[in-house]
């Protein structure tokens, strides 16, 4: 399991715009670089990130080889109701990781 850092405010007012920050540990190997033995290292990147808020997708991103290692993504959404954010990263070599965070909206 890759390490992640997720920052979702614990609580927010209804209708408030909240910022969500996510960071995941991943080498994001481009597939263009030679390794120590001179051979090209196989591509190993995260290709897609998605965030759902109580099941509804509120943010998604496609990632490409130019993205730096340990990709950091920050985005905003409107706090509409208490519930769960689900973050999913999918990538090469069957990489898939899901993390969740909860928010209480008043």
């Amino acid at each position: 399991m890759a390490r992640t850092l997720i920052n979702v405010p614990a609580s927010a007012k209804r209708g408030e715009v909240i910022e969500i920050k996510t960071l995941i540990q991943h080498p994001m190997e481009t597939g263009f670089r030679p390794g120590a033995n001179g051979r090209i290292l196989a591509r190993d990147i995260i290709t897609k990130f998605a965030c759902t808020y109580n099941g509804e997708e509120v943010f998604a991103a496609e990632l490409f080889p130019a993205t730096a290692a340990n990709p950091f993504l920050a985005f905003t959404t409107v706090a509409s109701e208490s519930g769960t954010f689900r973050f999913t990263w999918t990538g090469d070599n069957g990489f898939k990781q899901t993390e969740t965070a909860t928010i209480s909206v008043t």
Binding site: R3, L5, N7, K21, L23, Q25, F72, A74
Partner: peptide
């Protein structure tokens, strides 16, 4: 400064 944006915190978790 932000512990949720500082990638070094991933190694700290390790």
């Amino acid at each position: 400064k932000d512990d949720t944006a500082n990638p070094g915190m991933l190694w700290v978790q390790d």
